[in-house]
């Protein structure tokens, strides 16, 4: 498949300060990628670099087989055919919803423009407020208008900068799924910036974790969770704890929870000390188990409890337990290990 968007070793500096360091990834046509990372990690700068608001001092940005940016060339923003949805939506307050959407359609004939607007209105269910001004709309409605405006002219790449940041949390995942549906329906290649992993997982096909200006891993959500490339990602994505252990074989580690074996060979030599990632779903509650741990804290999550458990040694573990197993704090409960993906990292220096 052709890459619609490809970044090759892109480095960007703002006011002399390097923000992005040698970023590479590509996105196939129709795929949705997400740049995930804590605030200040450079993900928004990366998005703006793709859009053409920033120029890399090294590396190249390719959009649909055209070199859009490198350190010497910069295809003008308005000629790149990228759509962008802004965090604050940036709707034009002096135009109605319809005028906002039609804004990027100046090149189309009247009939085609009408037709495209009709499509978008149907797609995004905007009939009720098509002739209103933006300040009359709810946040969700504004969001839909911003999206419609950005995809109206069928951009090669759609960029979304924290599009759900101003929504309430309950709405976020729902909207993220909705937007994903729409993008998939229209076959739009998109890059999303987020600091919220649930949002990222709900929407994206591929997720890139960025920290400190570096792209740490560009992978599916599943792999990021279960096969994190390094300790940072393991820590950043999902929940879990590290417990110390020693490599005893090609695929096995010995820990205070016993010997844990994985399906793939480990990168570490036998005998070397490692940290083993234990996810909450790796620890199952089993009343019959001989291994016990004391409930230290618990958080109700609807269908499940997230228990923080303490072993005798003081090591803490997390465990996700169906919520009908309601144990009080300080009670010792039986636990069982069930690790499909053994993830170990060398201990920190």
């Amino acid at each position: 498949m052709n890459s619609t968007l490809e970044l090759k070793n892109v480095s960007v500096a703002i006011e002399g300060c390097t923000i992005l360091d040698s970023i590479s990834f590509n996105l196939t046509e129709g795929a949705i990628g997400c740049l995930l990372g804590p605030s200040g990690c450079g993900k928004t700068t990366l998005l703006r670099t793709i859009a053409g608001f920033e120029q890399p001092f090294e590396g190249e940005v390719w959009i649909s087989g055209i070199r859009a940016s490198d350190k010497r060339h910069l295809v003008a923003i308005e000629q790149r055919q990228v759509g962008m949805v802004f965090q604050d939506f940036a709707l034009f307050p002096h135009m109605t919803v319809k005028e906002n959407i039609a804004f990027g359609l100046a090149g189309l004939s009247g009939r085609h423009r009408k037709q495209r607007i009709r499509e978008l209105v149907d797609l995004l269910k905007m009939d009720d407020f098509l002739n209103k001004y933006p300040h009359r709309l709810s946040g969700g409605q504004q969001q839909r208008v911003a999206l419609a405006r950005a995809i109206a002219s069928r951009p090669r790449v759609l960029l979304l900068d924290e599009p759900f940041a101003s929504m309430d949390i309950g709405l976020r995942e729902h909207l993220a799924r909705e937007v994903r549906e729409i993008l998939k329906q229209d076959g739009i290649t998109a890059v999303l910036v987020s600091h919220n992993q649930l949002e990222a997982f709900a929407m994206a096909d591929v997720v890139g974790v960025i920290n400190d200006g570096r792209l740490l891993q560009w992978d599916t959500a599943f792999n990021l969770y279960h096969r994190p490339g390094n300790a940072y990602i393991a820590d950043f994505i999902g929940e879990g704890v590290f417990i110390p252990g020693t490599v005893i074989g090609e695929k096995s580690v010995e820990t205070e929870l016993g010997i844990i074996s994985g399906s793939a060979p480990l990168a570490a030599l036998p005998g070397s000390p490692v940290n083993v990632l234990i996810r909450p779903d790796d620890i199952l509650h089993d009343d019959d188990s001989t291994m016990t741990a004391v409930v230290h804290k618990k958080a109700f999550r609807g269908a499940e409890f997230l228990y923080t458990l303490a072993l005798d040694s003081g090591t803490q573990l997390l465990s996700l337990v169906p919520s009908h197993h309601n144990h009080p704090v300080n009670e010792a409960i039986g636990i069982r290990l069930e690790i499909d993906h053994l993830v170990v990292f060398p201990p920190e220096a």
Binding site: A51, F53, E78, V82, M84, D88, A90, F92, G107, A150
Partner: peptide
């Protein structure tokens, strides 16, 4: 006029 509005305009193809 928020900067994002200008950027929105540019990304929508306006010089």
């Amino acid at each position: 006029i928020k900067p994002s509005m200008e950027e929105a305009g540019r990304s929508l193809g306006l010089s």
